[in-house]
């Protein structure tokens, strides 16, 4: 032991040129790895397609209002009405296209709201522990145990049934999930030696929380955010189905609600099928995107 000479380990400097990496930005790295992820790309394309539909809805179809083609009520899918018509003769295809706008808006808004509330609460209560943690988690638990649906109904009734209100209400009831995931991750990360090492090299607390804790807690948060986007689309559909949606705008839930309230859903299967497919596509796309982002962000899960 005493007189060993310094033998270099197999240093990366001696790696063959072919696997040496050029200098890249983190974003470019992320894109490179995301592109290789099949599910993630499928999810991204799904969402992009829905976004395009939402943006170009006026160009694709007429906004369905009032009474439609009353001579063609409750038509099954045909060449003129691809998804059939409802009980007042409105095209289901048009309704689904216009409903995309509302559903995407609700999904994104409520996910952003739940991130804005849930991440700070989870981070702070996980990182500082003690009293901060008790208070943060008490609030979270209260929100988790609240009977969400009746409260949503009451709030929707009180605040009025605008689409923004719906999105805010759903966001206000979705953040506990984010807070819990963030806290659980933070608790595990807090004990890692790189947090201590960061303190030793003089990194400030705020920077430790963002650069070291949040960066490592980020993937599960992001995945949960995509799940919330999916579930809030479902919640919106549920609220609309209960008649608490915005009567002035079309959402997929409203279509289902109309089908239900007119009592034709048993005979006219197309009324339920097409909006449901749209919901499934949107929710799955968000979930796939979440999986893809997670794997691209986590160096150890990256596909080679």
């Amino acid at each position: 032991m005493e007189n060993t000479t310094l033998v270099k380990e197999n240093v990366p400097g001696s790696l063959p040129l072919s696997i040496q990496q050029p200098r890249t930005s983190p974003l470019r790295e992320f894109i490179k790895h995301f592109r290789r992820n099949r599910l993630g790309v499928i999810g991204l394309f799904g969402i992009l397609a829905l976004l395009l539909l939402a943006v170009f809805a006026p160009a694709i179809s007429d906004r369905p209002t009032g009474y439609g083609d009353v001579t063609n009520m409750l038509q099954p899918p045909n060449a003129q009405y691809w998804f059939g018509t409802d009980s007042v003769g409105l095209s289901i295809f048009d309704q689904v296209i216009w409903g995309t706008r509302v559903s995407l808006y609700v999904g994104l808004t409520s996910a952003v709201i739940s991130i804005l509330i849930g991440v700070p609460i989870g981070l702070l209560s996980g990182y500082y522990g003690g009293r901060v943690s008790h208070i943060g988690m008490a609030i979270t638990d209260i929100f988790l145990t609240l009977p969400v649906l009746p409260l949503m109904i009451i709030m929707a009734a009180v605040l009025g049934t605008g689409i923004s209100n719906i999105a805010i209400i759903i966001g206000l009831f979705s953040w506990p999930q984010i807070a819990r995931v963030t806290r659980a991750e933070t608790l595990a990360i807090r004990e890692k030696q790189y947090i201590e090492a960061a303190r030793a090299i003089g990194t400030k607390e705020s920077k430790i929380i963002f650069r070291h804790v949040l960066l490592n807690a980020f993937p599960p948060i992001l995945v949960n955010m995509t799940i919330i986007m999916g579930t809030s689309v479902l919640s919106e559909a549920g609220l609309s189905f209960l008649g608490l949606g915005d009567p002035m705008s079309w959402s997929w839930g409203t279509i289902l609600q109309n089908a239900h309230s007119t009592g034709v859903i048993i005979h006219a299967w197309w009324l339920a099928l097409f909006p449901s497919i749209a919901i499934v596509v949107l929710v799955l796309s968000f979930n796939f995107l979440g999986i893809g982002i997670n794997e691209a962000l986590n160096p150890r899960l990256r596909k080679r």
Partner: peptide, 8 residues
Amino acid sequence: YSSLNPRL
């Protein structure tokens, strides 16, 4: 193994 931030 735990003293280096795996994401940097």
